[in-house]
Write a protein that binds this DNA or RNA. Structure first.
Length: 825
RNA sequence: GCCGAAGUGGCGGAACCGGCAGACGCGACGGUCUCAAAAACCGUUGGGCUUUACGGCCCGUGUGGGUUCGAAUCCCACCUUCGGUACCA
């Protein structure tokens, strides 16, 4: 007796939903069967490339990775079930600063640190149960990958898109090294706290500005509008004019200014140069020299970050050079000032200042007591300082009376006729500085020879491998520069002793083409073959965080266009569709961080609830593009649902054979309505409502089973369909229950079910009856009932005369199948 | 400052193209089961008023206006929050 009870209890327990038992089992089976292996070509199937941004191997997977990747996986799986040959690869963005910092702290060699993290994170990624094709895994820090990163550098160099020029960098005088912007905190070195300076260094640049105009043209792409807008703002095209200004007392000199408002030129009351402007030294008067030099020195010491962070100081930091320039429009002299609100890196590094029509010029004029002259008539009710809007020109001689557009055109024509200026377009976008004075990156494949100059490493000698044995100690240069073995090399042209470039490439370079490599992993004859490129590119669906909205996505677009121009890839854009998920926050609604102690480790959630529950909960939380706090308590609701599903799918059902009964038709209706809803929800990336729909169908089936006998055909269709449409979201439990129901392995090889419209039709619909827009009652009518029928039904309501309140209907509005509104007076 | 997105129950959120606001969950409350608890299951749950009861009425989607037979949804003004950007001439 006792024994029997125990064995029953055990049987009961073993039949409970236990994710920790079924999930590893199925993952092992899928891996053994290569279920997610994606060949380049499958007979009768169209290729589709889905990709989610790859992680940096920091050591541990974050909830954010799950939040980004598991809905992406569901989307990829959905399309796979729709009959596409879907590639969904994964890899590691493995070069970068944290690995090198670990080495500087003496913890581990960057390579060992990275390799260990990659190994650990690969296992964590596998726990997601995603359909990643691990045969295509890439790792940007491996020689067989960065060999091709270097190859791309050479291609860009050969195309004239890579050039070497001087540029200011952040320099720490104590550590004697260059710092990345992220390493500069409040104008100080994050390591030693000393003030960071600006230094000019020779650096490699990619000429992304050559593509500015084409990159700006993103209107037609299927991307979130705000991301496209961010890119357009970042590129920052402005149209205007550039013209020369003569300098009093220096008849041989002139400087050029850029303006978007040449129509306001008659209002110029001073001119401003950037402190770094090359003419500063020559034009400064002797009387002003000490003051000017002090000012220039002060700005040189300030980093760009510091200069830009001093919001309160706008217009307050400048100095008079003691010299005047001539406004060519009216031949009047105007004082030349230096001010740090003018940047050497934009336009010509000098401006004409029109305080009446420009806010910053206004502030500066006020601070330095310079004259202000309006050249555009503001509207009568205008109450402000500078007027930047449109209006008729005044005090402007031959421009008077003209409005902005016309006045600009006339001013530019005049400049061109005079031969002193011309129409000009400027971009905010700057060339992409890719040199990094660091070890843990792809070495730039160039050689410096005393007699032959700068020479590229021949392609057949790639990769230029990173030496493992280097010293990690702070000096002025990359640790690579300390390696004699690395630095010294024969010149590829004359074979005389020469020196290698010791800088490595920005890691954004590695991630600008990684998506190409997935299409052709391990190809040692090319970065990507034309066959692989045309099989997979461009990417059909890219997903990733909007923190990459500008840099990574813009660099990749640039890179792709350059590759297209080399005839390597098809199409003009790398990412046909892009979707950016929101950010998942800690339970307290703040960004998760170790110091705040609000980090939710995904491994813990998986251990406690299972991967499927965790996946579904992340999708159920809210709209995917919104993100939000991770509520640790809410997941129990999803867990209860999957448990209920398990019970419904594995319990005995009292079957009957009554396919035409109301109950059977109700089940069929619910089934097909859910198929339709879940299909459109997944296509719209509305995973939260897809989960809600799946819960509803589960509840419906649960209640139907409890209520008594169920039609066998309707039930079978309902259960199988429910598992099929659940499969992309929760791949393990759906596979397990699919098998237990006696279906063929694997559920992930099945086709997506089709919603039968005719099964979805309701027998009757309940129409709200409104009086003057307020709901008063309801009538039940067939879904195709016409206005007369619905109106007749309403008039037959027992409380009809109460609803009218003794008033006369003057109008009736009927929206078929939705509502009836009676307007009374 | 500028650009963008969003404000709906105690909480996360739902609502097609202007047509029954609050789907689906969490939490809470009540119940079944239990020696008890947990789990599980069932029920209730925007606020207010009213009815012995069935029910009925009013208010309600950040604030104030507007358009409309009808507004969470469209228009105008404002407030708040979040994200991006930062002297780009």
């Amino acid at each position: 007796m006792t024994t029997e009870t125990t064995s029953e209890a055990t049987a009961d327990l073993s039949d409970r939903y236990d994710p920790s038992a079924i999930e590893p089992k199925w993952r092992a089976r899928w891996e053994a069967d290569q279920l997610y292996r994606t060949p380049d070509h499958v007979e009768g199937k169209e290729n589709r490339y889905h990709l989610t941004m790859l992680p940096y191997p920091s050591g541990d997977l974050h909830v954010g990775h799950w939040f980004a990747m598991t809905p992406s996986d569901a989307l990829a799986r959905y399309h796979r079930m729709r009959g596409y040959n879907v590639m969904f690869p994964m890899g590691f963005d493995a070069f970068g600063l944290p690995a090198e910092n670990a080495a500087f702290k003496g913890d581990a060699h960057p390579k060992d640190w990275t390799d260990a993290n990659v190994a650990h994170m690969r296992e964590q990624l596998k726990a997601m149960g995603a359909m990643f094709d691990w045969e295509r895994e890439m790792n940007s820090s491996q020689p067989d990958y960065y060999r091709w990163t270097q190859w791309w550098f050479l291609q860009l160099y050969n195309k004239g898109l890579a050039e070497r020029k001087t540029a200011p960098v952040n320099w720490c005088p104590t550590d004697n090294t260059v710092l990345a912007n992220e390493q500069v905190v409040g104008g100080r070195c994050e390591r030693c706290d000393s003030l960071v300076e600006q230094r000019e260094l020779e650096q490699w640049f990619f000429k992304i500005t050559d593509y500015a105009e084409e990159l700006l043209d993103n209107e037609a792409m299927d991307w979130p509008e705000h991301v496209k807008l961010m890119q357009r703002n970042w590129i920052g095209r402005s149209e205007g004019a550039e013209f020369g200004m003569k300098i009093q007392g220096h008849e041989d000199l002139e400087f050029r200014v850029f303006t978007t408002r040449p129509d306001t030129s008659f209002g110029m009351t001073f001119a401003v140069m950037a402190p770094e402007h090359p003419l500063v030294d020559q034009i400064t008067s002797e009387a002003q020299r000490p003051e000017v030099e002090a000012f220039v020195e002060r700005t040189r010491l300030a980093t760009e970050i510091e200069r830009l962070s001093t919001e309160g100081d706008v217009g307050k930091r400048g100095v008079f050079t003691g010299t005047h320039a001539i406004n060519p429009f009216n031949n009047q002299p105007v004082p030349i000032y230096l001010a740090d609100y003018v940047l050497m890196s934009y336009g010509t590094g000098a401006i004409m200042a029109v305080p009446g029509q420009d806010d910053r010029d206004w502030d500066f004029a006020k601070a330095y007591d310079l004259p202000i002259l309006r050249t555009v008539q503001p509207p009568d009710d205008f109450e402000g300082d500078a007027y930047t809007g449109d209006g008729p020109a005044i005090n402007s001689d031959w421009l008077d009376g003209l409005y902005k557009e016309e006045a600009i055109a006339k001013a530019i024509t005049w400049l061109e006729d005079q031969g002193i200026g011309e129409r000009q377009v400027n971009y905010r976008l700057r060339d992409w500085l890719i040199s990094r004075q660091r070890y843990w990156g792809a070495p730039i494949p160039m050689v410096y020879c005393n007699s032959c100059g700068i020479q590229p490493v021949p392609e057949e000698e790639l990769p230029v491998e990173l030496p493992y044995d280097v010293e990690f100690r702070p000096t002025g240069e990359s640790p690579l520069a300390l390696s004699e073995e690395f630095v010294n090399t024969p010149c590829p042209v004359c074979d005389e002793p020469a020196k290698r470039e010791t800088d490595t490439m920005d890691t954004f370079m590695c991630s600008s083409w990684y998506f190409m490599r997935y299409a052709d992993p391990g190809d040692d004859g090319a970065a990507i073959s034309w066959d692989a490129a045309t099989a997979w590119l461009p990417i059909d669906q890219y997903t990733g965080g909007s923190e990459h909205a500008v840099m990574h996505l813009l660099y990749s677009r640039f890179f792709y266009k350059a590759a297209r121009d080399m005839g390597i890839v098809p199409g003009d854009e790398p990412f046909t569709r892009y979707y950016s998920q929101g950010q998942i926050l800690g339970p307290d609604g703040r960004r998760m961080s170790k110091s705040r102690g609000n980090v939710v480790p995904p491994d813990d959630q998986v251990a406690r609830w299972g991967a499927d529950t965790f996946r579904a909960y992340l999708m159920f939380l809210g709209p995917w593009d919104q993100g939000g706090p991770y509520d640790v308590d809410g997941i129990v609701g999803v867990s209860r649902w999957l448990n209920r599903l398990w019970t419904v799918a594995t319990s005995e059902v009292a079957f009957t054979d009554a396919p035409d009964s109301d109950e059977a038709r109700a089940i069929r209706r619910a089934t097909h309505q859910t198929i339709a809803r879940v299909s459109t929800d997944i296509e719209d990336k509305a995973f939260n409502t897809a989960v809600a729909a799946l819960m509803e169908l589960t509840n419906t089936l649960h209640r139907a089973r409890e209520a008594g006998e169920v039609d066998r055909t309707a039930w079978t269709e309902a259960m199988d369909s429910l598992l099929l449409i659940l499969a992309p979201l929760c791949p393990h439990i759906s596979e397990e229950l699919w098998e237990r129901r006696g279906n063929d392995y694997s559920i992930h090889l099945q086709s997506w079910p089709t919603a039968d419209e005719s099964a979805m039709v309701e027998d009757t619909v309940e129409i709200p009856v409104q009086v003057n827009g307020k709901v008063r009652d309801h009538v039940n009518v067939p879904p195709d009932a016409d206005e007369d029928a619905v109106r007749a039904a309403a008039e037959a309501l027992p409380r009809w005369s109460d609803h009218l309140g003794g008033k006369e209907p003057v109008r009736v509005i009927y929206v078929p199948g939705r509502m009836l509104n009676v307007v009374v007076k």
